[in-house]
């Protein structure tokens, strides 16, 4: 009989716990700082430089292109995350598929050195 443990792996509890910790850590500021606007630190930092060195002119170098608005910017960040997610998912899909085709014991490209 196939058990839940076999299907999901024995780390189900550990994974669940890990995900909960991550969500709590990320959600915590939303609760602790109800009035925050959560502006990117990159932008906040630039403002501080303007205070520290009011005469400094950052205009000597400009981005060759910048998104026309926050919506386009969000889209590009989403694109970046999507590309990354695709790479991670593709690799895991391959590894998982390979494992299901071949039993784990012959998982290794160099079989004999890996399993004695």
């Amino acid at each position: 009989m196939v058990t839940l443990k076999q299907v999901t792996g024995k780390n189900l509890i550990g994974v669940g716990l890990g995900v909960i910790i991550i969500v709590l850590l990320i959600a915590m500021p939303l609760v602790l700082t109800p009035n925050g606007t959560f502006v990117g630190t990159d932008n906040v930092g630039s403002d501080v430089i303007r205070q520290l060195a009011p005469t400094y002119d950052s205009g000597w170098a400009r981005n060759w292109w910048s998104p026309p608005g926050t919506e386009t910017e969000s889209m590009l960040f989403a694109l970046q995350a999507a590309v990354g997610g695709l790479l991670v998912g593709y690799a895991f899909g391959y590894f998982k598929g390979r494992k299901s085709v071949r039993p784990a014991s012959v998982d290794a490209p160099d079989n004999e050195s890996a399993h004695q």
Binding site: L32, Q80, G84
Partner: peptide, 14 residues
């Protein structure tokens, strides 16, 4: 790529 695209709120309001 994924992680550096994720802007996550922090307790300082940024």
């Amino acid at each position: 790529f994924v992680l550096s695209a994720l802007k996550i709120p922090s307790v300082t309001g940024s």
